[in-house]
Design a protein around this nucleic acid. Structure first.
Lengths: 192, 192
DNA sequence: ATCAATTGAGGACATTTGTCCTTTATTTTA
DNA sequence: TAAAATAAAGGACAAATGTCCTCAATTGAT
């Protein structure tokens, strides 16, 4: 059953009874995306949140110079969405693209608002997830401002080794906030 | 009355009835901090959230090299806390210090959890605030990775001009992610 | 299997930023 | 007010990173 990992994930956020889970899980729809498919497209309002059962996503945007900047890689057993766009219901500056075949559970904005207003548990899940996303973003900002490109690369290597294999060099480079040239230097230093 | 701006701020997050506000506002206690006083001290678990009625705070930490890095300036009509520490009830890596005399409304962890579990409205305020903090942090991360030091300085000049006057050069520099030397160059470029 | 297209590695030089200073300006205290 | 302490500006050189390139390796299609 595709919702077992999801139930477990929610349980770890806050206690949710089997009844409450079963009553609400049908607001989420199973969906399969192929490599290259977009879950979120920049310019459109992001209307959905996905729980990733399997697969990997790249979150990116185009900066003012038109460069493709990767802000995040999302892997299985996590939610993904263009959170700011979803919260504010404004056009997304981010795109989210599957970089391999991915299976997800999707809920739309109306569905989630319905859960929020009908269930204190879901209101709490919403808060706890927002807090969690905040902490992830804070960590990301901390890494951006404190670590050298080399340290960032080593961290990625430790924390998300699959990404090194699955993502393109230019995407890893922009994720780390450096150019391909600098990433090439870093890889050289490390291998020696 | 010191809670009017606070009521207005909450209203703007989500509708809260006068009764609900009056029933719950007493969980917040008025407090005055002098320039240099600490609201949060790194190493201790942050047990409080403050709404800033007046004044300015600097949020900072010491990195592995022992350098004092400013991560944020907080001004009136906003909440401030070491959010990660507060959420996880773990020792804070951040300190929060008043850089001028400041008047705040303070609630402790127990009080807030009490409001969360007793009032759907407060659970929602908690979620909406977490979402808001997320967006602020995302914006901060975006600025960190996209803007040059000069652009960052000009942004600070536009968005929080008071900070330029109130904060020390080294604190502004670390906030921008550059050294004092680079900030000095930027100021020179701009003035010419 | 072969050729074209894509991707990654890395050289050479320019630019940016940092480090370590000294000098100047401002603030604090006796 | 004068002396001392603190804070900001900026010079000189070093180090890091970016830009623009070429070349090698890999992948994909016929």
């Amino acid at each position: 059953m595709l919702t077992n990992a999801f139930r477990k994930y929610l349980q770890q956020l806050t206690p949710i009874s089997d009844k409450e889970f079963d009553d609400t899980v049908d607001f989420f729809k199973e969906q399969v995306l192929q490599k290259g498919d977009f879950f979120v497209t920049s310019g459109k309002v992001c209307q959905q949140v996905a729980f990733i059962n399997s697969g990997t996503f790249r979150v990116f945007y185009l900066n003012e110079k038109g460069e493709d900047i990767t802000s995040c890689f999302c892997t299985s057993n996590n939610f993904t969405t263009s959170y700011k766009s979803f919260i504010l219901q404004q056009p997304s500056s981010l795109s989210i693209q599957a970089i391999e075949m991915s299976e997800i559970l999707v809920i739309d904005y109306e569905g989630l608002q319905h859960l929020y207003s009908g269930y204190l548990t879901w209101q709490k899940i919403g808060r706890v997830l927002a807090e969690k996303e905040y902490i992830v973003m804070e960590q990301y900002a901390s890494v951006l401002s404190n670590e050298t490109a080399k340290e960032k690369y080593l961290r990625l290597l430790m924390e998300q080794p699959c990404i090194i294999q699955k993502a393109k060099v230019e995407h890893i480079a922009s994720y780390l906030g450096v150019t391909r040239r600098t990433l090439s230097r870093i890889r050289r230093e490390i291998s020696i």
